[in-house]
């Protein structure tokens, strides 16, 4: 459990960091909270030549809320997301998701940007990002660009980030009123990783029917996905138990669920439905309740 030798680099700003990454590309890895990278290095599954520690860059540690957008710096730790008043008010789904990550030690060190860039299929944040229509602001040698959450997760542990880019911040558009959200998960009993994690968002129209439905699912497939069939099934309907159950039954439609030592493909498919139902039920309840979630 000791990593191979590596060189440690601590850039002074984003520009320097990007410049270094641009020079060394795949030989360098960005170190944020270190909750995935360091264990992989200790197991010698990863042996980067350079670790680029961005942990002290202040511009990655800001949280900002304006009329339309909540902006969260990529170095904000899960524990801070879980507890920050600003996030609890502006985006309770994000706080609820962060609270489900790993254990307290992991949440105290791990960062939102690190987790998203690592793109573990069993992570918790990706489904929530899909549901929130998050935008990822990325710095590269040619300046900034925006990647939409739905374009970000491209494959198992693979994202649209290039080796010479750094995830700077996550922008979450403000939600309309009468919106309820929920994140529920079945966790691997030992590690806490999601076997299935379902983020959902329901916005009720004036007629009390679901005007907008969004469902994001982690853990089931190698890539987090929006369960469009579920969304379409429920959209325009009253969010009662039967409609929710009918929609949730489509949670793994068109998906070939993962099969591993934690759960069989069949079990994941079944749990996708159970947890989609539970997530939608909670979101519907919150959408109807006076206190917005």
């Amino acid at each position: 459990m000791f990593p191979a030798n590596f060189n440690y680099v601590r850039p002074n700003n984003i520009r320097e960091a990007v410049q270094f990454l641009n020079e060394h590309k795949d030989d360098a890895k960005v170190l944020a909270g270190g909750q995935s990278l360091i264990p992989m290095m200790k197991l010698r599954l990863a042996a980067p030549e350079f670790l680029v520690d961005i942990g002290r860059l202040p511009e990655l540690k800001e949280i900002d809320l304006d009329d339309a957008v909540l902006t969260i710096g990529s170095l904000i730790r899960h524990a801070d997301i879980e507890t920050a008043d600003l996030i609890a008010r502006a985006c309770p789904l994000l706080a609820e998701t962060a609270a489900e990550i790993g254990d307290a030690q992991v949440r105290n060190r791990g960062t939102i940007g690190g987790s998203l860039a690592h793109a573990d299929p069993s992570a918790d944040l990706p489904a929530t990002m899909l549901v929130l229509d998050a935008r990822f602001s990325v710095a590269g040698p040619d300046g900034r660009r925006i990647i939409m959450a739905e374009d970000f997760f491209t494959d198992v542990m693979t994202t649209a980030l290039r080796p010479n880019e750094i995830l700077v911040s996550i922008e979450i558009p403000k939600m309309s009123r009468r919106t309820g959200c929920a994140y529920v998960k079945m966790h691997q009993q030992a590690s806490g990783f999601a076997i299935v994690g379902v983020a959902s968002l329901i916005t009720l129209g004036r007629n009390g029917r679901a005007e907008d439905v969004r469902v994001g699912i982690n853990g089931v497939s190698g890539v987090p996905y929006r369960a469009h069939a579920v969304e379409e099934s429920l959209r325009g309907k009253p969010v009662d138990e039967r409609n929710i159950a009918e929609a949730a039954a489509l949670a793994a439609q068109g998906v070939e669920p993962l099969s591993d030592i934690h759960a069989s493909s069949e079990y994941r498919r079944e749990m996708a439905t159970v947890y989609a139902r539970r997530s939608l039920q909670r979101a519907a309840q919150r959408a109807s309740a006076p206190q917005r979630h």
Binding site: Q189, A190, H262
Partner: peptide, 25 residues
């Protein structure tokens, strides 16, 4: 009763959960 199990891989002959990450106490 609820969690512990040494999981062996028939093909490679290896233990798949020799760690506290996937072997639950």
């Amino acid at each position: 009763t609820l969690f512990e199990e040494r999981v062996m891989d028939e093909i490679t002959g290896r233990m798949l959960n020799p760690n506290m990450e996937f072997y639950k106490l």
